[in-house]
Write a protein that binds this DNA or RNA. Structure first.
Lengths: 136, 136
DNA sequence: GTAGATGCAAAGTATTTGCGACAAG
DNA sequence: CTTGTCGCAAATACTTTGCATCTAC
């Protein structure tokens, strides 16, 4: 898994430092969407000398290199996740904070169509659903 | 127009101060999506003694009262617009920063359906399209 | 060897808050 | 009157940056 991010770094000419390898590894192994603080905590357990500035610099670099995706969900800090081929959107449980990833082709298509209707080519988009669990 | 927000305040039991009236009036008359700084600028032209803290407090209050909608588009400051019956989403021109509002029933329906599929009832959602103008 | 990365602390932004003075209902 | 609001400045939260040192290539 971690190979993956490291390979991407090579491909993009991003220098592979120990710090970056650790951050890459942690993000690869994470199935949630940590914010920088949380990522810093996890990173610190492996190498306590890494500074939070480096974490900020690295996630920004990785984002610009198309390795990580940055999300700014409601209420505060930016959160990150590894960017893979399959695009997905997010459904956020407003009570628990749990995040569910989903894919819906029809919505993707519709978005293209709307942009097109106004004379635009879509370069990015953001869809977040906020919901509460239904009683069964 | 401005009557509108003032009426909503009365209905919600929100005390109507001079400052709030001014902010309400400006938001009613604005067709764009000003951030707090910009709103503060506009407000200052009418009453230069209003502080930015009051502007922050008021937009937050208005948001909680369902009078304004808060948007956190890419890259920085929160922006506000008057909340009216008709819900709409946003298409943002990434070159010029221009914001186009659009409504699409099909997308709204699809979102409900997706939430439902995962056992959730939708309480809120956010859809933002980022695009560049096509050559004709 | 050299360009770029790191750690630290200091500086930026955007936003919130404590507090005494003040105003709406 | 009394409760909530305002203006101010100080505080907070998140993120970025200058600089001297260090490291990957």
């Amino acid at each position: 898994m971690s190979e993956n991010i490291e390979q991407k770094c090579l491909a993009k000419g991003v220098k592979l430092t120990d710090q970056r390898k650790i951050i890459a590894k942690i993000m690869s192994e994470s199935n949630d969407h940590p914010d920088v603080d949380e990522l810093y905590n996890r990173v610190s357990k492996i190498d306590s000398k890494i500074s939070i500035a480096t974490v900020y610099r690295t996630v920004k670099l990785f984002e610009e290199s198309g390795i990580l995706a940055k999300h700014e969900f409601k209420g505060g800090k930016a959160r990150y996740e590894e960017l893979n081929e399959g695009h997905h959107d997010h459904l956020i449980d407003v009570k628990s904070g749990e995040i569910i990833e989903f894919v819906d082709e029809k919505i993707e298509k519709l978005q293209e169509k709307i942009a097109d209707k106004y004379g635009y080519r879509l370069v990015d988009h953001k869809l977040e659903l906020y919901g509460v669990k239904k009683k069964p």
